[in-house]
Computed example of a mutant assay.
Amino acid sequence: MFRVDLNQNRLSRLSQKRFSELNLRERDHLQEWLANQPDALGEELLIIQKEFDGFDETRERLDLLALDKDGNLVVIENKLDDSGRDVTWQALKYTAYVSGLTNTQIVDIYQRYRQVDGCSLRI
């Protein structure tokens, strides 16, 4: 990655740093950035819940749950650095968990999310 200096018409290489070196945290930083600017992921998304834990028989929770412009559920599992965990398996597992949600449940999930953010919503 490079910094562009338009005044001098030069590029300068930026040093590579891990998020942990910058004291950035997954939940406090990356998750909030994406929740507030989901199109940073490259498509139009509506975040409907953070830290979604509405799964039966498990205490696991996914980072962000969203809807794409076609109404499909999108599971977003954030990793700041290489955690050594099998992220693909984790995302597939969460996808299986949410695949059974009904439209009514999805609306309820989004309403709860909006209420926590201090916004009332009627659908």
Score class of each variant (00 low, 15 high):
Leu24Asp: 11
Leu24Cys: 08
Arg25Ile: 05
Arg25Phe: 12
Glu26Met: 10
Arg27Gly: 07
Arg27Asn: 08
Arg27Lys: 08
Arg27Gln: 09
Arg27Tyr: 02
Asp28Val: 01
His29Ser: 08
Leu30Ile: 09
Leu30Gln: 07
Leu30Arg: 05
Leu30Ala: 14
Ala35Thr: 13
Asn36Cys: 08
Asn36Tyr: 03
Gln37Asp: 13
Pro38Thr: 06
Asp39Ala: 07
Ala40Asp: 08
Ala40Asn: 06
Leu41Ser: 09
Leu41Phe: 05
Leu41Thr: 09
Glu43Ser: 13
Leu45Val: 10
Leu46Arg: 07
Leu46Phe: 08
Leu46Ser: 12
Leu46Tyr: 10
Leu46Ile: 12
Leu46Cys: 11
Ile47Gln: 11
Ile47Trp: 00
Ile47Gly: 08
Ile47Val: 15
Ile47Asp: 06
Ile48Cys: 06
Gln49Lys: 14
Gln49Tyr: 04
Gln49Glu: 09
Gln49Pro: 00
Gln49Val: 01
Lys50Cys: 00
Lys50Trp: 00
Lys50Ala: 05
Lys50Glu: 05
Phe52Asp: 03
Asp53Ile: 00
Gly54Met: 12
Asp56Ala: 14
Asp56Phe: 02
Asp56Leu: 09
Asp56Pro: 13
Glu57Gln: 13
Glu57Phe: 11
Thr58Gln: 01
Thr58Tyr: 00
Thr58Lys: 00
Arg59Phe: 01
Glu60Lys: 06
Glu60Ile: 00
Glu60Asp: 01
Arg61Trp: 07
Arg61Met: 07
Arg61Ala: 12
Arg61Gly: 07
Leu62Pro: 04
Asp63Ile: 04
Leu64Glu: 07
Leu65Asn: 03
Leu65Cys: 01
Leu65Ala: 03
Leu67Met: 13
Asp68Lys: 05
Gly71Ile: 07
Gly71His: 01
Gly71Gln: 08
Asn72Ala: 14
Val74Met: 04
Ile76Pro: 05
Ile76Phe: 01
Glu77Asn: 02
Asn78Lys: 02
Asp81Phe: 09
Ser83Cys: 06
Gly84Ala: 14
Arg85Leu: 12
Arg85Phe: 11
Val87Gly: 00
Thr88Met: 05
Thr88Trp: 07
Trp89Glu: 09
Trp89Asn: 06
Gln90Pro: 06
Ala91Val: 15
Ala91Pro: 10
Ala91His: 01
Lys93Thr: 10
Lys93Leu: 12
Lys93Glu: 11
Tyr94Gln: 10
Tyr94Trp: 13
Tyr94Glu: 06
Tyr97Cys: 08
Val98Gln: 00
Ser99Pro: 10
Gly100Arg: 14
Leu101Ser: 05
Leu101Ala: 06
Thr102Lys: 12
Thr104Trp: 03
Thr104Phe: 04
Gln105Glu: 14
Tyr110Met: 15
Arg112Gln: 15
Tyr113Asp: 02
Tyr113Gln: 06
Tyr113Leu: 01
Arg114Ser: 06
Arg114Gln: 14
Gln115Val: 14
Gln115Pro: 02
Gly118Thr: 13
Gly118Arg: 12
Gly118Asn: 07
Cys119Met: 13
